[in-house]
Design a protein around this nucleic acid. Structure first.
Lengths: 248, 248
DNA sequence: AGATAGTAAATTGTTTACAATCTGAAGGGG
DNA sequence: CCCCTTCAGATTGTAAACAATTTACTATCT
């Protein structure tokens, strides 16, 4: 048999469109609140309304757009509550996946090389220079670990929430600084080592710690009024007090 | 302003279709592996392929159907790994929501009456007689609590996972007995009481305990071979060993 | 002026027709 | 006998037209 030339099964048109629109949202070209008019987009992309319609539904399912019957879709606008909820979800679901991964990391069909490669990408000069690129690299590494756990629902949820984070970072203009980037890489290096050693307890602890520090880092740029309000929220206490961290 | 007469905004046709198909899957009329042919369904429902197509995508997004480009959709077939993953997710995300709810239960805009009503429904004779109805009532109560937490992403994820559970119960023919039903209600009553008392720590503990017992109950009917295999899985250990329970 | 009904443009929802792709069976070498 | 090609039917993907709904503007009445 000759080799399969049909290797790229080509995502469906609707998926490609959705990817393109998502990208536009993440890069700030499509701002929160913008309307997504089917006809308009159809003309822009030179394609009929059918696939456009489907792409918009995909974005809506991801939470990036809101649909109202007979009124079309608008790009949704994230707020601080959303950020906290997303981090809480990532902390919990990620913990399950990291635990699973560490417990199975010695098995033959798991190789951490892919994750290692993504970790090293975080040292690239180009990546280090850009806030959004650094965050993107961070999330790609995290998602790769979760994907290696082999838990499909959790993997999907984490990928979805990673997009949420990027939307929030874009919309709320969150900034990390150079030392944050340094810490990020060093934390991930330790995490990966513990996973490789199959020390699931320690790995989960490092994971929870990482999410907490991520939250702490992005609150640095906030005014003290906003900070006080933020720390008054039950979710914030949940993230910082409960679970594996408190008992330490 | 007069009261809103437009109370029933009527879901979109695609949503209604998706609801109908989902129901058919949950009742076992559409079995795992069945093909979902657009033309066929269009004739059955006497509607064009457009909305049918959209409905199938909705089911696919929920994980109830699998889509293959140019090859149509089939009803997906759940297995034991899926059940465990779903329970692990419910345990974690539910814990966040219960914690949040207990911490805010004294606030004016939270009323637990709706949850109380759903709890009482679990004592109906009709519900008690049917396994699937009992499970459905159980999940409705759990989902109501989570919804009251006001965390939209977690609420959505829990609703999605509740459908997963029902699919698994249907496909794997899981059975509870009368005493399980009794325990179910008594556990929920205690949980609700702790939430009302705003004792978030105790409430979360009861939640985790409930999920664990649910898993234990549905494994009762399994052969010991299946059981041994099940308890070998890392996820199983995760559900039973880690988190809030171990420290007790 | 302010409220209200009527109306036209814009937009989404649905249908129908057509194009592209896949599946499986029949037929023709090797 | 097996493998490969070919072709027809079935099925999904896309386009374009039509129907229903919403929105915003205008005219009219009190």
């Amino acid at each position: 048999m000759s080799f399969n030339t049909n290797v790229l099964p080509q995502e469906s048109t609707a998926q490609l469109l959705a990817d393109s629109l998502r990208q536009a949202i993440l890069e700030g070209q499509l701002k929160p609140g913008s309307r997504l008019v089917e006809q308009e987009l159809a003309e822009q992309y030179e394609i009929s309304r059918g696939p456009i319609r489907e792409a918009i539904r995909i974005l809506a399912a991801e939470g990036l757009a809101e649909l109202r019957k007979n009124k079309g879709a608008v790009v949704s606008t994230p707020n601080m509550d959303d950020v906290l909820e997303v981090y809480a979800i990532r902390m919990s679901l990620g913990a399950i996946a990291i635990d699973q991964l560490a417990r199975t990391s010695s098995e033959s069909d798991v190789d951490l090389e892919q994750a290692q490669a993504l970790l090293e990408k975080m040292n690239d000069r180009k990546v280090r220079q850009s806030n959004t690129r650094m965050i993107q690299a961070d999330l790609l590494f995290q998602n790769e670990l979760v994907a290696l756990s082999g838990l499909p629902r959790i993997t999907e949820a984490m990928e979805k929430s990673a997009v949420d984070i990027r939307v929030c970072v874009q919309a709320l203009d969150i900034k990390y600084d150079e030392s944050d980037h340094e810490n990020l890489v060093s934390r991930h290096t330790k995490l990966l080592a513990q996973i490789a050693k199959a020390n699931s307890e320690k790995a989960v602890e490092l994971w929870v710690d990482h999410i907490r520090k991520s939250v702490a880092e992005f609150t640095k740029g906030m005014s003290s009024d906003d900070l006080n309000e933020l720390f008054d929220r039950p979710l914030m206490r949940h993230v910082f007090e409960s679970k594996n961290g408190k008992a330490k």
